[in-house]
Design a protein around this nucleic acid. Structure first.
Lengths: 201, 201
DNA sequence: TGTACATCAGTGAACGCGCGTTCACTGATGTAC
DNA sequence: TGTACATCAGTGAACGCGCGTTCACTGATGTAC
């Protein structure tokens, strides 16, 4: 593998290099040249696979949404309880993902890729995450565990709460306020608990 | 005023120029040279007032937290109802501020200024916003309108929900999901409504 | 009130650096026959 | 199975640009006497 002229899977290596840069130096330090350097390839090589930095960034974001959905499905399956338990597991998985994969998370919600309408793959990946939440709510409603109000509105409440916690955690806003007792997952569990009290039928 | 060699209040002008750049081209486009250009001053002039871009950025963030607190106090006062009403007004004001002053909001929660411990002014401004929320919760608890659980935990739930909604709105995540019916303030009102159902005694 | 002097605030030229982009190139891979 | 050829993937030099930083400078302001 090593020493080959052709890389084998340069797109993969570029995505990984970009994630390493985001994790180490922040997303502001992500440049095409820097990514190429980290992947051990000449600076012009990435252009054969990604037209510009935004294209690479969109690919990372789409992959991030897919991984998030996978993580949520896995944790929901593992929960194995009622529809409400699975709903809750999805919320906790969201925060857990943000903490485990901060580089992906930052990439996913960066302004540069905010307009996902220009990229069908990205739009689909992001949409799938929301649909997962929506389905969980509808199932919980069908089982009478959640109020029968507009499921989209309930999804927005749940999403906002989990996204807000994840964002505050990642931006270090909770570090100096005595709020960060225990790990993020426990904190998320507390929040979903509280949240669900407001979603009772 | 115009034509003078000395500017009069260059720090003020630099902050305003930076905010204009953030609003027009995004926070990634904020550079010391660009800010100086926009303020109509030579590129080395800002160094007499801000040691580097981070110092300017921190000043903007601190000012943003102060303005947010002011907006929240004003809306809480205007609410004039029960302690719960004032609590709710504080939450709605948070989202309202993010929508009215996106440039400040982006600056306030940017990773570059995340570690507020290095800047006492910034730390105090950010802390005051959280204290405002905490006080509102304690008052509502004293009046028996909110459950007597740990007020810091309740504050975190409320903050996460409002911050999450604000962040999702600003990142354009709600634009293509049929969630953005009506304005942000109405949306925030709906969310606080739902949130408070979970905070009942 | 006036003068001398120190300090402050902004200028403009210069520097080195990393960036994106372009280009002709070359080695590796895939395909037609 | 072998050969010829087209396409693909990565190289390395070159370019212009905007950036932060440094520097000697000069005009404006404040203060001591």
């Amino acid at each position: 593998m090593a020493g080959r002229y052709h890389h084998g899977d340069l797109p993969r290596a570029l995505v990984d290099a970009a994630l390493a840069i985001i994790a180490d130096e922040g997303i502001g330090a992500m440049t095409l040249r820097g990514v190429a350097r980290r992947a051990g390839v000449s600076h012009a090589a990435p252009l054969h696979h990604f037209r510009d930095l935004e294209a690479l960034h969109r690919a990372i974001a789409a992959e991030g949404f897919e991984k998030l959905a996978g993580h949520q499905r896995a944790m929901a399956e593992h929960a194995k309880g009622s529809a409400l338990d699975r709903f809750r597991a999805i919320g906790i998985a969201y925060v857990d993902f943000a903490e485990r994969e901060p580089a992906y998370f930052r990439a996913m919600f960066h302004p540069r890729v905010a307009d996902s309408s220009v990229d069908p793959t990205l739009a689909a990946s992001a949409g799938a995450v929301f649909d997962l939440l929506l389905d969980a709510i509808r199932t919980a409603q069908a089982e009478g565990q959640v109020t029968a109000d507009d499921p989209k509105e309930l999804a927005l409440v749940a999403w906002s709460t989990m996204h807000g916690l994840a964002a505050l955690l990642m931006d270090g806003q909770l570090d100096h306020k005595g709020l960060l007792r225990g790990d993020a997952r426990k904190l998320a569990a507390k929040l979903t608990n509280r949240l669900f009290l407001g979603l009772r039928p």
